[in-house]
Simulated assay, not measured.
Amino acid sequence: MLNHTMPNYKLTYFNMRGRAEIIRYIFAYLDIKYEDHRIEQADWPEIKSALPFGKIPILEVDGLNLHQSLAIARYLTRNTDLAGKTELEQCEVDAIVDTLDDFMSRFPWAEKRQDIKDQTFNELLTYDAPHLLQDLDTYLGEKEWLIGNSVTWADFYWEICSTTLLVFKPDLLDVHPRLVTVRKKVQAIPAIADWIQRRPQTRL
């Protein structure tokens, strides 16, 4: 007989939203139980040395460690409408997620020198972010969601990434009310609203 019981999931990441938050949103929306294992920075070197690729988040699925947050997100959303309802929509979802991730990856999150970090953040938010936001706004147009006619994990990822960017530049979306509306619609989904309300409050 086939075993259809739900796998045991354990998500390991720092006590922050960061790269794990998209996975937490998906778990919340799909109502999947998991262990949200948050580690302290002091424990990271020891944990890092035990990981094949030395990076987190990792999702342990019945003892198997999966890495790369977006690969994990694709695994969890496969065969759900969150991934997109058609193969074309799924490609569009992946493209928007990758576009957002390309931009977020340009920030020197781990830079030790604060002056260099501040300068680079300021340049990206002042000169580069407006181009990305205009492209996203044009892509969204008059649609309710970024892709198709229902929410996908690309909308989740937009809300998560923009929440982080707004920490550094609170007026970032002032000229993009349609993109703000998508954020608010994601935040109003009952399962997501519940998670946002009860998650540990962290700056990033």
Rank of each mutant, 00 (worst) to 15 (best):
S49I: 02
G54Q: 11
G18Q: 00
N3V: 08
G141E: 10
L66K: 07
D101Y: 03
A71I: 10
S162L: 10
F121H: 11
R199W: 01
L132G: 05
R78A: 12
M6N: 07
P45S: 09
T77R: 00
E142Q: 11
W195A: 00
S162K: 02
R106Q: 13
D98Q: 10
A129G: 06
E46K: 13
L82F: 10
Y75P: 11
D62E: 12
A129Q: 04
W44M: 05
Q134R: 12
Q197F: 10
T152L: 06
A154Y: 00
A110P: 00
V167N: 12
L76N: 03
W44D: 06
T120L: 15
L88W: 13
T138P: 00
K48M: 02
M6H: 09
A42Q: 14
K10M: 08
D118W: 04
M16D: 04
P108F: 03
I32E: 02
I189M: 12
D101A: 02
N8L: 11
W158M: 09
F53W: 12
R113P: 01
D118S: 12
P130Y: 09
E60P: 03
A71R: 05
D171I: 07
A191E: 14
P130M: 09
L133D: 07
M104E: 08
E159I: 00
I47M: 00
V175H: 11
L166W: 06
D155H: 08
D36I: 05
L66F: 15
W109S: 00
A188H: 10
K55R: 15
E60K: 11
L125E: 08
K185L: 14
A154D: 04
P177M: 09
G148F: 09
I47C: 05
P130K: 06
T99D: 02
D43V: 05
E46V: 08
E89I: 10
A28K: 03
D135Y: 11
V61W: 06
G141W: 11
N15E: 14
N79P: 03
P177A: 10
E21L: 01
N149V: 07
I39K: 01
W195G: 01
P57Q: 07
C91T: 14
I189E: 04
F53V: 12
I23G: 01
Q90D: 09
V93Q: 03
L125Y: 04
D174F: 11
L100H: 02
F168W: 15
A83T: 03
N3F: 09
F27H: 02
P200D: 12
E144F: 05
A129T: 09
G18I: 03
L64P: 04
A83S: 15
E87W: 06
M6E: 15
Y25T: 01
D94T: 11
L136P: 01
Q197R: 14
E35I: 13
D115S: 14
T99M: 09
E40N: 14
T77H: 01
A193H: 14
I116V: 13
D137L: 06
F168N: 01
I96V: 15
A191K: 15
S69T: 05
K112N: 07
L140N: 03
R19A: 00
W109P: 01
A20E: 00
P130S: 07
Q114M: 12
P190G: 06
K184M: 13
Q68T: 05
